[in-house]
Design a protein around this nucleic acid. Structure first.
Lengths: 193, 193
DNA sequence: CGCGACGTTGATTTGCCTCAACGATTGTGG
DNA sequence: CCACAATCGTTGAGGCAAATCAACGTCGCG
């Protein structure tokens, strides 16, 4: 059944008994989304955490020139949210939508907080997630500043082959911080060497 | 007296009574450093949080080509640490040192944890700091990806004039992600327009 | 079938880097 | 306290990475 994936994911960091699993599962709201559906609009306060069962989401911003910058992908078995808006309850400057048809669970912030009080293990779980998000962002900043696009692309497809396979290349270009045309030239170069 | 600055800083987010202030102040270790002194070496586990009373620190990494990348400055009245190493107790890939003579307080991680238990308000305080750090990193990534170096420089001196005034320009170049020569050309261009 | 989204290719331009050289300032040892 | 070295900021020449713009073939989908 569909809750299996999320339980398995959580169990990677904390151990739950049957009661705890049941309590947790009852907080989940299951959603099925088409490609291109928006989960969080610009300016809206993010009040949910999302767990992706299958499909792929993206978190992105739009700069003053209208160019989109992908901050994060969220493929199957990943958690995502707009952390700053979520934590501070301020309007989000980023947008979350689906790049493919997708199935996910959402959990309301207030339910999360009750969960933390009742089962403190979950506080630990989400703190670990939060730390990992922080580390990922720092690594990306370091990479953008220090290694060329070609190598960043190679590392990306090694690290996230499952993302690479299911979405248009232009989104990967946006994530890497290069134009789609240039990514195409990189791919051409790699293929002929 | 020297504890005044840190109490004032903390009081911006939480209110403390005299007992709480005393307890907190007793955990602080005061240090005076010369320019260029290293607080955290590469590969060492970071076991402290630092509060800068005066002077300026930097957190930086060295890439595979030997180029330094400044991740963060810490001028007077700022907190700093190497969060990932601190939280996970793993060897740090970044280095912390002083760019000027400096005076600071350090707090041991284990003392912090006891502090959180005794005075939970501090947990809130550091969670807020942590969130802000996260937001700053995300903004920087967005800026590096979307706006040209010239504008990043202009924004930097607007936002951090006090840093700009006390350290060599080459560190600002490193923070912005450009070569010192190119920053020099940017400055020249701005001056003649 | 036809249209729009996608990926590619080529020509041109631009942002930024590297290397080298040079004054100016700072610091240091004799 | 001076002399010399090191650090710093700047300038110029040349080069490379990546952007922009335009055009074109392909393909999935309404």
């Amino acid at each position: 059944m569909k809750e299996e994936a999320i339980i398995k994911n959580v169990s990677r960091h904390i151990k739950l008994d049957e009661m705890e699993k049941n309590y947790f599962v009852n907080l989940l709201h299951h959603r099925i989304l088409k490609k291109g559906e928006i989960l969080l609009k610009y300016g809206e306060v993010c009040r949910y955490n999302y767990f992706v069962i299958n499909g792929c989401l993206r978190v992105y911003s739009v700069d003053e020139y209208g160019t989109e910058h992908i901050i994060a992908f969220a493929p199957a078995d990943w958690w995502t949210s707009e952390l700053y808006s979520y934590l501070t309850e301020s309007p989000s400057e980023n947008i979350i939508d689906t790049l493919t048809a997708a199935e996910l669970f959402e959990i309301k912030k207030q339910d999360m907080e009750e969960l933390f009080v009742r089962i403190p293990k979950f506080e630990r779980f989400f703190r670990i997630l939060f730390q990992n998000a922080m580390v990922n962002h720092l690594n990306r900043l370091k990479q953008v500043l220090s290694i060329p696009a070609e190598e960043r692309y190679i590392q990306f497809i090694k690290q996230y082959p499952f993302i690479f396979n299911q979405i248009p290349l232009k989104y990967i270009a946006s994530f890497l911080g290069v134009s789609p045309e240039f990514l195409s030239k990189i791919r051409n170069k790699i293929a002929h060497s």
